[in-house]
Write a protein that binds this DNA or RNA. Structure first.
Length: 564
RNA sequence: CGGGGCGUAGCUCAGCCCGGUUAGAGCGCCUGGUUCGGGACCAGGAGGUCGGAGGUUCAAAUCCUCUCGCCCCGACCA
């Protein structure tokens, strides 16, 4: 395509509303423009990238036997009421005002609708149905450009099987296909197993990419691949052993000492001998939670340990429950349920609050002084702690969810009555799986991982064009003619060429080329042309070298083959 | 939904606190000329209901009220 005739509105300055690199660069390169919060138009260059991702997804989905559908975004509300998801989605679901339709936020119901009464025999399965379609979700807070939008492209597929064993197969096929898709796209990703067992034997995996723009926090071990959402992640940490001799409990006057750090400073002790107190409320009953030192309470783990939902107590409740304010609360004299992190299990000679403002207590022995104490892993893991699976260290960082594969089981087939007859003529619900990939997120994550100060660095797989041809001074007739010839012949030979034939200064064109980031730049200038040479530049490595005109095709082919 | 920030030319922003000729700059855009290997130069030019509505005032981009939009943090996230 000729840049002089193509709509690629590049921006020299950073748009005011963009913060994360992918968002900034997608705007600056003219890939996208915002229409409204969380709603983006893809411009020609951006849409080319989207189509490349879709094609990779399509190839890999087809390779595992997937069949592509195209489903409506406009859905009758009553189908969504069959599974109770109108209520489950709540405000996230867009409702159409003048008819009883909703805008589909995903398509389990619609796929199940097509399967029921049609996929009636065990002989009809397995099936894998997929589509690449726009989804609508009324996100309360769209952010980070295309990463969290109210309207987005999703590849979603659904498997239909006769048994749990067969579901495992469909699930594994997706797992492998997803790894191939993200690898082909050039993404550094990892897989988080999020199996909770909450739905009876179901499992799920999230495909994640490390990113500052991420909305999930994960713990990851580079050496063994252990990865877990920080809500459930565990780690190996050491703590002091129980000391052989327990001191007596004694009260200490600690004026204005509130935090663990202040307490350690005041008493010249280590934080590992401190039991930090937090009060939570569950079913209107207070629970005292004890953590070692500055360890943070992981509320997800706490809920699991307690067995019901919890919330932190309000400041005024603290006084009422314990007689003290935050900073002076402790287990001695506390009337109610006490649960402690495993790090403090059976410890003695600990320091904690006295349930009296400005006082702490030392010499606490959990075995002797704290009756009915429960123990559980309640910590939020932190970077640098030991991996639970190997001897390496964990890293904790934010990440973006690119894809999710999920064993649905019979939730939808049962509620929507999608039954089949097995070999014995017995009726059973279809066993389903559901698998999604955020297409725009793939693009945004690629940019997050592959950019420098000048702009995007595309790989061969996703680049909107492979070659960026630049003519320096197209007013020079020879330069113009040779550039035109190169463009025509390369295009005819099947190369994907973006041709900057604009009448602009060289620096302007070079900077635009680096910003747009095609893998190879071919630069046609007057000086080198005298020797029948043009310059090639590899965007990623900044390598440059001269190529003879009549060798250009073979050299470019060679370069493209060698590039990722 | 809570907290914070912002809305002035296509883009980035100044002016607002302390009201007062014709609302500015840089970049971009248009015309002509020069230039052409890392965001060129000269000359001329177009472009604004200062997000919107109401109010205070002799006078509002500026002060007040309401409203809409966008960004960030939090809550939420099948």
């Amino acid at each position: 395509m000729r840049l002089s005739k193509t709509f690629v509105p590049t921006l020299k300055e950073i748009p005011n509303d963009a913060v994360v690199p992918s968002h900034i660069l997608m705007l600056r390169t003219g890939m996208v423009r915002m229409l409204s919060a969380g709603i983006y138009s893809f411009l020609p260059l951006g849409y080319r990238v989207i189509k490349k991702v879709c094609e990779i997804v399509r190839q890999e989905m087809d390779a595992i036997g997937g069949q592509e559908f195209h489903l409506p975004a406009l859905n009758p509300k009553e189908i969504w009421e069959e599974t109770g998801r109108v209520e489950a989605f709540g405000d996230i679901l867009f409702h159409v005002k003048n008819r009883d339709y909703v805008l589909a936020p995903t398509h389990e119901e619609i796929m199940t609708f097509h399967a029921r009464n049609v996929v009636k025999s065990y002989k009809d399965m397995p099936q894998i149905w997929y589509q690449i379609q726009t989804k609508f979700r009324n996100e309360p807070r769209p952010r980070s450009g295309v990463i969290r939008g109210r309207q987005f492209l999703m590849k979603d597929s659904y498997s239909f099987d006769v048994s749990w064993e067969d579901l495992d197969k469909s699930y594994m096929l997706h797992d492998e296909a997803y790894r191939r898709i993200f690898t082909r796209c050039g993404l550094k990703f990892f897989v988080v197993g999020a199996s909770s067992g909450a739905m009876g034997g179901t499992g799920s995996e999230e495909f994640m990419v490390k990113s500052e723009a991420g909305e999930d926090t994960v713990a990851y071990c580079e050496s063994c691949g252990y990865a877990a959402n920080v809500e459930v992640a565990t780690s190996k940490v050491s703590s002091p052993e129980r000391e052989t001799e327990s001191k007596q409990v004694y009260e200490i006057h600690t004026p204005n000492v509130k935090s663990i750090d202040e307490l350690c400073e005041f008493l010249k002790i280590d934080e590992s001998v401190c039991a930090k107190s937090r009060i939570y409320i569950s079913n209107n009953q207070p629970i005292l939670v004890l953590m070692q030192g500055n360890d943070e309470v992981n509320e997800t783990k706490l809920e699991k340990a307690v067995g019901s939902t919890i919330r932190p107590a309000h400041p005024d409740e603290l006084k009422e429950i314990t007689g003290a304010d935050a900073g002076s609360i402790g287990p001695i004299g506390f009337n109610g349920r006490i649960i402690s992190d495993l790090r403090l299990k059976d410890r003695n000679n600990l320091f904690s609050g006295a349930n009296k403002n400005d006082y702490h207590i030392g010499g606490i022995d959990f075995q002797r002084d704290v009756k009915n104490i429960d123990y559980a892993d309640l910590r939020v893991v932190q970077s640098g702690e030991g991996c639970p699976k190997c001897d390496s260290k964990l890293e904790v960082f934010p990440a973006i969810e690119l894809g999710h594969i999920f064993k649905l089981g019979t939730k939808y087939s049962e509620s929507m009555k999608a039954y089949f007859l097995d070999e014995n003529g017995k009726e059973n619900p279809i066993i389903m799986g559901s698998y999604g990939i955020g297409i725009e997120r793939v693009v945004a994550c690629y940019i997050e991982q592959n950019h420098d100060t000048k702009g995007i660095v595309w790989n061969k797989a996703l680049a909107p064009f492979h070659i960026h041809l630049i003519s320096i001074n197209p007013k020079n007739e020879k330069v113009k003619n040779v550039s035109d010839e190169i463009y025509d012949s390369l295009t005819k030979s099947g190369f994907e060429v973006l041709y900057d034939d604009r009448d602009a200064s060289p620096g302007f064109k070079f900077n635009d080329a680096d910003l747009l980031g095609m893998p190879i730049q071919v630069i046609v200038g007057e000086k080198k042309l005298k020797d029948n040479l043009v310059e090639c530049k590899i965007r990623k490595s900044d390598e440059r070298f001269d190529v003879e005109l009549n060798n250009l095709h073979s050299k470019l082919k060679e370069l493209l083959d060698s590039l990722e």
